[in-house]
Amino acid sequence: MRASAQRRVPGGKRVRVHLELEGGAVMVAEISGDFFLYPEDSLKALEDALVGLSASTTEGSVLALVEHIFASHNITSFGFTPHDLARTIWEALR
């Protein structure tokens, strides 16, 4: 099953999340948009971290995961916050 969500962050950028779900869990995740992320290669770490995530995960758990990847990969984002991304992922999961 394919699931998507997107948001235009007020004063910021567009974030889109496309997920492929199987058996209630994420198999493939793509995060896209016109934002800026440094270092750029860290987007893959964010996408990889979503694989295996359960469709019933809470928004708080998604936020904790996103914040962990931001911290562990020293990510700086412009155009969205970890909270914006977590909310978009959670909306796609729902």
């Binding site: 889109r16 496309h18 793509e30 995060i31 896209s32 016109d34 934002f35 992320l37 750029e40």
Partner: peptide, 9 residues
């Protein structure tokens, strides 16, 4: 297009 964008979008 930006490196994070989905081209077909």
């Amino acid at each position: 297009i930006g490196c994070f964008q989905n081209i077909l979008d």
